[in-house]
Amino acid sequence: MTDRDGRSFDRRRFLAGVGAAGAAGLAGCSGLPFGDSSPSDDGESTENGSAAFDEFRGSGPLVEGRSDLGGTRIEDLPELSGELVIYLGGGEGGLYRDLLDRLRQIYPDFEPVARDYGTAEGANTIISESEASPADVFWSVDAGSLSAVAGEGLTAQLPSEVVEPVPSEFHPDDQWVGTAGRARAVPYNTEKLSADDVPDSVMDFPDSEAVASSIGWAPTYGAFQAFVTAMRLIEGEDATRQWLREMVDAGASQYNNEFLVSNAVADGELDTGFANHYYALRVQASRPDAPLDLAFTSGDAGALINTAGAAVLSASDNGDLANNFVRHLLSSEAQEFFATHTYAYPMVSGIPPVGGLPTIDELNPPEIDLSKLSEIQPTLELMREVGVL
Rank of each mutant, 00 (worst) to 15 (best):
A315C: 11
W243K: 03
T272L: 09
I351F: 08
E258Y: 10
G251D: 13
A264N: 05
G273Q: 02
L329W: 00
D267G: 02
A339S: 14
N364I: 00
R232Y: 05
P288V: 11
V261D: 02
L270A: 08
E333L: 05
V265T: 07
G236L: 12
A311R: 02
E246H: 08
P366R: 05
E237K: 07
E336G: 06
P365G: 10
A344C: 10
M231L: 13
T307V: 15
L330Y: 04
V261R: 03
L281T: 07
H328K: 10
S316D: 06
S253Y: 01
R241L: 04
H277L: 13
A301Q: 04
E336M: 13
H341Y: 02
A285S: 15
G222V: 14
S262E: 12
Q242A: 15
Q225R: 15
A315D: 14
Y343A: 12
V348Y: 04
D369Q: 09
A301W: 04
Y279M: 10
A266R: 01
D238C: 00
D271M: 03
F338Q: 00
Y279G: 00
L304K: 04
L357M: 15
H328D: 05
I360V: 14
R327Y: 12
M247I: 09
R327C: 11
G350R: 03
G236M: 11
A311N: 10
D317V: 06
T359Y: 08
G309W: 03
P353A: 08
E362Y: 02
T340D: 03
T340P: 02
P353M: 09
V228C: 06
S286H: 01
E269F: 00
N276H: 02
A230S: 14
F296N: 03
P353R: 01
R241P: 00
E362I: 01
I305S: 00
A334V: 11
G350D: 06
G299N: 10
F338E: 04
G356C: 06
A280R: 01
Q335F: 09
Q254F: 13
T240N: 09
V261A: 00
A252W: 05
D249G: 07
P365R: 01
R245M: 14
N306T: 14
S332E: 08
A290P: 03
S316Y: 06
R287Y: 06
F259E: 13
Q335E: 14
Q254Y: 12
G273S: 10
